[in-house]
């Protein structure tokens, strides 16, 4: 088979005020076609008001083997969460 269209990752904002979220991927010859294909494939039922596409080769993902090194340090820092602090009941909403 001849050279195929590159792969693109599709991100969709489902409504104004929300973040774009990864929806899946598609093939397209260029960015314009990627938007059109993403529209046809991922928003047939009003799933979106805005689409981002980015060629998959431009995405750098963290290595699952590095997950501990990357995310472990955050685990023991419970003082970063509001529930760590004991305040008297009189302080109602804080």
């Amino acid at each position: 088979m001849k050279k195929s269209w590159p792969l693109w990752e599709v991100f969709i904002r489902s409504k104004s005020g929300l973040d774009h979220k990864h929806a899946g991927s598609i093939h397209a010859a260029d960015a314009e076609m990627a938007i059109e294909n993403a529209r046809d494939i991922y928003t047939r039922r009003n799933e979106g008001v805005s689409i981002w596409v980015v060629e998959s080769k431009h995405i750098t993902a963290s290595d699952p083997d590095d997950a501990d090194a990357l995310f472990e340090p955050a685990k023991d820092k419970i003082y970063r969460h509001p529930t760590f602090y004991n305040l008297p009941d009189e302080v109602k909403h804080m």
Partner: peptide
């Protein structure tokens, strides 16, 4: 069509 789209891009 696939080839032409790629050539155009």
């Amino acid at each position: 069509v696939r080839e032409a789209a790629l050539a155009y891009a």
